[in-house]
């Protein structure tokens, strides 16, 4: 049983870290985003292994189902997906590498060597009558309306602010939008142009400068 859990843990760790490395190493930004989804998924599975069911599901729902979709959408709305012929990294990427490795060493040395983590977790029921000693969705929900009420509301306000902010930032005014005519509109336009030329209205609004069709003809 323990061996099984260890194997699962190592597989998950390999998935999380391998996918993480691919996220920063792959040239094609779409592939990068797909590896990111793989990493998110691995983290969700790790939560499941850590018996945080609710968080695992929320991880899948929020990260895999929403954030990564948002990222994919943003990539597709901006061009240059393949990244061919461009530098992938900044010129001084080695500095970043140095910082990352130093940080890793600085964090991991005391974690592994100077600290003993053999703490026996307190077990036993949370409240009398509760079967397990692990807080689940029920306790979490109760916490959100009691001890963490203010935090919960602040998080809600934050989401609202982010929602409004994102709309305001990404909003495109109607008159600045790129003008692409649909087939039906083009057809209608041609029809109207014929009507106006029949009426000899040479100075119609159709020939106004800047109009896409009048320019092309």
């Amino acid at each position: 049983m323990e061996l099984l859990i260890q194997i699962i843990f190592f597989l998950l760790a390999a998935l999380i870290l391998g996918a993480g490395v691919m996220v920063v190493a792959v040239r094609n930004i779409i592939h990068s985003a797909l590896w990111l989804i793989g990493s998110f998924f691995g983290v969700g599975a790790l939560y499941l292994l850590l018996e945080a069911e609710f968080l695992a599901v929320v991880q899948v729902l929020v990260y895999v189902g929403a954030v990564s979709i948002l990222i994919l959408f943003a990539i597709m709305l901006t061009r240059d997906v393949s990244g061919q012929g461009e530098r992938l990294l900044f010129q001084r990427w080695w500095l970043a590498l140095l910082v990352a490795i130093t940080l890793f060493a600085a964090v991991i040395t005391p974690t592994l060597l100077a600290q003993s983590w053999n703490v026996v977790p307190p077990t036993g029921p949370i409240e009398p009558g509760q079967p397990t000693g692990i807080a689940g969705a029920l306790e979490l929900g109760r916490g959100f309306v009691h001890e963490f009420l203010l935090h919960f509301e602040i998080a809600g306000v934050l989401l609202l602010v982010a929602l409004i902010g994102a709309i305001v930032i990404a909003f495109e005014e109607r008159n600045r939008r790129r003008k692409v005519l649909t087939l039906a509109e083009e057809h209608e336009l041609r029809k109207r142009r014929e009507q106006t030329s029949d009426a000899n209205a040479s100075e119609s609004a159709l020939s106004a400068p800047g109009h896409p069709i009048s320019q092309s003809e």
Binding site: K179, E185, A205, I213
Partner: peptide, 8 residues
Amino acid sequence: QLADTAGL
């Protein structure tokens, strides 16, 4: 919509 996209 036509007026909007085509400036009519």
